[in-house]
Design a protein around this nucleic acid. Sequence first.
DNA 1: ATCAGTGCAAACGATTTGCACCTCG
DNA 2: CGAGGTGCAAATCGTTTGCACTGAT
Lengths: 156, 156
Amino acid sequence: MKKQERKIGVYDLNHTEIEYPEGIKWTRQRKAVYAVLWNATEPMSAVRIYHLVEQESDGEEYAPSTIYRILSAFEEKGLIEKEADMVDGTITYELCRGSHKHYAVCLECKRRIPLQNCPFAHIHLDRETEDFTIIDHKLEVYGYCKDCREVKSAEK
Amino acid sequence: MKKQERKIGVYDLNHTEIEYPEGIKWTRQRKAVYAVLWNATEPMSAVRIYHLVEQESDGEEYAPSTIYRILSAFEEKGLIEKEADMVDGTITYELCRGSHKHYAVCLECKRRIPLQNCPFAHIHLDRETEDFTIIDHKLEVYGYCKDCREVKSAEK
DNA sequence: ATCAGTGCAAACGATTTGCACCTCG
DNA sequence: CGAGGTGCAAATCGTTTGCACTGAT
């Protein structure tokens, strides 16, 4: 009846080894959360992460508070990034890997397609912001992905 | 939290008459909410709007639920726009006036400076998005406004 | 007079917190 | 073994809902 002795069933879909960064206590719970983030292809809410962790852990149960505390700990350690979903304001979390900060979001299927190249790389703002020192920016593009566009035009 | 709390009066600073659009029942409560939005210079959360309405109404009390219902009603009528704050995900509301959809947000004083010209207007995305039909976009620029930049450099 | 709009209180969902117990290093 | 992580339950916060009453048109 001890839940503790069961093995965690969260492994990378491509059988890639998950790399657990050093300098942090790797408990069973933290590994499970980290694995979910590792395999994620887009930022996810705490609730979604919580469900995925339980789902992947095959019967294991977790306290919601634990998930939130783990996410805070990860964020403090700089392992993950906390961000607000620009559509509905949901707070989301994402593993810090280099690259893509921007997404094209399909209004139909809600899929988030990462943009590799930042269209703002070469942009400079004009007079109205010359009194403003730019540190960072956030951009999201909305529309319809190829699949959904085809479905919509076929419906007519 | 003693930042620079900018005061917003119920009446237009330039003594402009508030125009209440037709086709909607203008109760005392709705007028109060509309006035706050009319005078706002940036999107505000429901809670902030609620506080401002009570503050400006000099003793009058309002049920929080009323504020939320009014905001929903306004949104359905197309009078206001509901959006997520890109920094912390707070849901905000703003009167629909033409123009400025983008802001430069000061990381220090949290002030939101509207950008009149959309820098995205001249941008075209590259191959990775050619299979994506763009309908809209959202952009925010982060950094330090003139005042805060000066304060920060003076501190050193 | 009618029916949408309101106030109130209770319900709600997501997140946080206090405290006793457990476990990784 | 000890600091720190976890589970649980209760608390909090913003927002929503049901219902009886009120008020704009």
